[in-house]
Every structure is written in structure tokens, then in C-alpha cells.
Design a protein around this nucleic acid. Structure first.
Lengths: 192, 192
DNA sequence: TCAGAAGCTGACCGATCGGACAGTTCGGAG
DNA sequence: CTCCGAACTGTCCGATCGGTCAGCTTCTGA
């Protein structure tokens, strides 16, 4: 379960796939690429996994699980507390699963259609609602959407936006703090 | 040059391509798809255009030109005025070229490598700089990156984020106003 | 009337992809 | 020693893609 150097060929496949998916995207990585990185045949991948999708599902499973946990926690909060908790929980989630988020961002619509991510749509909807403090006002929902879309981009391991700016070299704690405060400003959230 | 119903087969191809690229992405749209929509053969597309890339380049050319204009205007402003002008100019740019932005978002890294978009990287870098009020502080740059990445998502014709929320039904003027104010809050920009 | 250009078609090509499958290697249990 | 199953390979398949090409129609101007 450690981030790098899993044991056995199966583990090596997962490691290589995680690296390549994050670097060149899910669609942009072929089974041949992974096999080449591992040093085995493409058929070996399909011996250990039911297919390319199965590799992806196993890689993203921990992130989906953590998202589910956050979803459950937010569900138990009242409208007053839910917004701040959503901001902090979301920033934390994305930062903890940077690599997974990077992979997911490659092609969200197609990826989320897979059965392994059946519940993600609903959870995303509820998270958006929480970020908007469960307000139906357009201004609140747009600000929530902005936060929802901006946070992953900042944390991604690969720059998807057109900018080629030098990576911002700061520690995770400072990044988390800046992200949380910026998101709170976007949402016009008091007391953050 | 009108958004819909260009004249002639060549115009129909551009219209169909614009619709399909926005709906299913550049990579997700095959020449066969476009030909089917137009009602001609795939070879006819390649008679009118040098290739799939050429269709894309022609579709995005007006947006690139408008971006170039914005870039030039921002270059003439001092550090005090540039941030607000960047916010308003960027929001305006993205809203005016929603469809083009939607297409571009499909695969920014690969798309921007094409010669037709040679200058976009530099312009994006300078826009980011302007949004950060040309400050090197990490907090300013992160907030600028958040704005840069969030605004297009809100305006896109196709929802790329996981949420399946009902589209926010408001007029363009209100959307522009909300976007500008939200972005200003994110950037901690006074007097917007 | 006729040559030639414009517009377009169907057939085809090579590359790449995910995946299927039969066969091979090899270590350990009986 | 035998055998069996896990691990793995090389090869092939069908589908899809962007793109090429020879040739067919249709319109036009000298």
C-alpha cells in the first residue's frame, strides 16, 4: 500500500502505471508503455489484471474510499459548519491523493463512467452543495464550482493549464494553508 | 464568421467540427464523426483542410487572436492597474470564446504544442503574472493559478468536473459579474 | 464543344490500441 | 521423479484512427 516500490510483479505494474498515468494520462498511456517500464510483456499485465481499467480502478480505490469517508462526515454536519469542513476536507483530500487526482483529471467524464466510480458523481454533487453552504444562489454555486475545479489543478503533478511557470516551491503545510485561505476567500467564507 | 451556419461545405465542416469538438473533445471526435454529421465523406474533409489539426487551428484562430490583443493591452499597464484589467479581460475573453475554450480544455498540453498556438504559452505565463499583480509571493501565484484554471470550467459548454449539477441558469451579464467578483475575492483584489 | 479545374467519393494503407490465446518455463508439493 | 499450477511469453486479432490516392461527376469559361 506504500506509495512506491510495491512487492512482486503485480506491485511493479501498479507502481509503473501510477507513474505513467500521472505523467502522460490514462488515455495517453498504453499497456505496452507500462509493460516496457516494468520490463515484462503486455500479456503479463493482462494476466495480473482484468484489463487496463482494472489497473486504474485499483490505483484510484484508496482515493475513492477517502472521498466516501469525507462525504459521510459532511452529511452529518449542519448548514453552518458544513462549508468550512468541506473546504478543509476537500483541500486535504486532494493534497493527500495528488497523484490519483492527476490521473483522474486526464479524462474525468469517461473515467467516471466506469463502475468502480459509480458513487463519485453523487458525492461530487453533495460536495459542491457543501462548498456552497447548501445555498441555491447562483453566486454561491459558481464560487463553489470555482473552488471545486481550481484546487486539483494546483495540486496536480502535471501542469494541464497552458502556463509553463516554474513550480511553486513550498512545503505541503504552507500549500495547504494558502489553498484553504484562497478557497475561503473565493467562497466569501468568514473566519478562516 | 458567424457562429453557426457558415456557407458551403467548408463552412458546414467547420460548424459540425465546432459542435462535435465542444461536445466530445478533440481527441474524442474522429474525422468520420464530422463527416457523418456533415453528410459527406471523410475524404471530403481532407480535401478542404490539410488535416484534423488544420480544422482545429482555423476554429481556434479568433480566440488566439483575441488573447493576443489582451496580452498586448496588459503589457502596457503598470503593476497597480494590471491585476484588475487582467481579471476583467480574462473573464471577458473566456466568456466570448466559450466554445473554443471548451475545445481547448480537452487536451491542453498536446493541443498547445501545435505550431498554430506557438505564442499561447508565453501569453498564459504573462496573464498569470498579471493576475498575481506581478508578485512572486507563493500565495499570490497560487491564487492567480486558481483563477486561471477555474474561470474556464465555469464557462465551458460541457461539464468536465465530476459534478452533474443542474446548469446554473443566469444571463451572461450576471455570470460575468459573479465571475469577476469571485475571481477578485480569490485574488484578494480590493475595489472590485 | 470541349478542356480543365473544383468538388467529392470509395477503397485502401499503416500505425496503434486493448485484448485473447496457446504454449513455455519453473518451483514446489506429493 | 512426476506433476501441476502459477507466472509469463510471443503471436495474432479486430477495431479505430488519420491520412492517401485514383478516379468519377459537375460546372465553367474559352
Amino acid at each position: 500500500m506504500s506509495r512506491s516500490t510495491r512487492s512482486g510483479t503485480r506491485g511493479e505494474i501498479l507502481d509503473a502505471a501510477a507513474r505513467l498515468f500521472a505523467a502522460t494520462g490514462f488515455k495517453g498511456t498504453s499497456l505496452q508503455d507500462i509493460a516496457g517500464e516494468v520490463g515484462c510483456s503486455k500479456a503479463a499485465l493482462l494476466y495480473h489484471f482484468d484489463g487496463k481499467d482494472a489497473i486504474l480502478a485499483e490505483l484510484l480505490a484508496p482515493a475513492v474510499e477517502a472521498f466516501t469517508t469525507l462525504d459521510a462526515r459532511l452529511a452529518g454536519l449542519g448548514d453552518e459548519d458544513v462549508q468550512l469542513a468541506a473546504v478543509e476536507g476537500y483541500v486535504d483530500l486532494v493534497m493527500r491523493f495528488r497523484r490519483e487526482v492527476t490521473v483522474l483529471y486526464d479524462d474525468i467524464p469517461a473515467l467516471l463512467q466506469r463502475p468502480a466510480f459509480a458513487g463519485v458523481h453523487g458525492m461530487s454533487d453533495r460536495l459542491l452543495d457543501a462548498l456552497a453552504a447548501r445555498s441555491p444562489a447562483p453566486a454561491a454555486r459558481i464560487a463553489a464550482l470555482m473552488v471545486l475545479s481550481a484546487v486539483p489543478v494546483i495540486c496536480m503533478e502535471r501542469i494541464e493549464i497552458g502556463v509553463r511557470t516554474a513550480p511553486i516551491m513550498i512545503g505541503d503545510d504552507e500549500l495547504r494553508s494558502i489553498l484553504t485561505r484562497s478557497a475561503a476567500r473565493t467562497l466569501d467564507l468568514r473566519g478562516a
